[in-house]
Design a protein around this nucleic acid. Structure first.
Ligand SMILES: [Zn+2]
Ligand SMILES: [Zn+2]
Ligand SMILES: [Zn+2]
Ligand SMILES: [Zn+2]
Lengths: 146, 146
DNA sequence: TAGACACCCTGAAGTAGCTATAGGGTCAAG
DNA sequence: CTTGACCCTATAGCTACTTCAGGGTGTCTA
């Protein structure tokens, strides 16, 4: 099959497929008489493997590593588990960051209940205070306001 | 003060300061006899305002908008509130995404309890199944596995 | 007076994972 | 013989920086 059909079947863009090839994730395909890429069912599976891992938020470098385990089923899977654990830790870390961000934003948002002049707006007042080095409501920690 | 002191006082890198200037966030500073940038207390506050907003996860375009409200205190603050609401919605959206990602990763991770050959590893088996278009444990939805 | 060192300058490239654009070739249908 | 759908390469753009190459400035010391 050609690149368009491959893309349609996997739900990803043609440019993305070419990008994965350039990045060394997808096996280099054969070319037909017109110089068009020609893919096999193997490569369709390979691309679906990649997209599935991407949907789990994994970076391309780690997907590359997982593909190597796919091609070497006799290898010890400890590396696979490690990749998963790393990814879980990364996602947890990001969630912690977003959680505290959300709390800060909520605190800040509550400073303005109704429309008024920006100079009187509790949000702007708070941001301007913080700019002067004074304490702010959104970062009520001892050393806050990075 | 020169750029190094400004950077030290705000805890950001010299290159970041020059970057903000290039992006039109920081007021263009005076230059001294040697062509070095020379900053005032006003600009220190401006930079601290920017860094504070960045610590709330706001993109530079929205910080630019907030800076305009800072310089126009007579404007209606509805735009300020809208920026905050947008940012809160964005963070909530990201958290929802990460939350479901985390659940999927946990389900997948549980497929392998001990070291073995990658070909026998429950994680790899699951990923390979998904690559063939078969249902996977990490995406147990009707249409899952994007 | 020469060298060392800390600081400053510009401009360009690199990061992640694509997406989009420019400028062209291939092929079947009408 | 032209239209349209598809394909190709190479390059730039996106975010928010960081890093690097190559060079200038200013002060202190030997
Ligand atoms: Zn307000
Ligand atoms: Zn704050
Ligand atoms: Zn395993
Ligand atoms: Zn899945």
């Amino acid at each position: 099959m050609r690149i368009g059909e491959l893309a349609r079947r996997t739900g990803c863009e043609v440019e993305t497929v070419r990008y994965y090839e350039k990045e060394g994730l997808l096996t280099i395909p054969q070319r037909d008489g017109s110089g068009y890429r020609s893919y096999t069912g193997q490569q369709l599976e390979e691309l679906q493997f990649i997209r599935h891992c991407r949907s789990l938020g994994m970076p391309l470098a780690e997907i590359k590593a997982l593909l190597r385990f796919r091609y070497h089923p006799q290898w010890d899977c400890a590396g696979v588990n490690a990749i998963l654990d790393t990814q879980i830790a990364r996602v947890q870390e990001q969630m912690r960051g977003l959680q505290s961000l959300l709390e800060q934003l909520h605190l800040l948002r509550m400073e303005c209940a109704h429309r008024q002049q920006a100079g009187e707006c509790g949000i702007m007042k708070n941001l301007n205070q913080a700019a002067k080095g004074e304490p702010c409501l959104c970062h009520p920690l001892p050393e806050g306001c990075a």
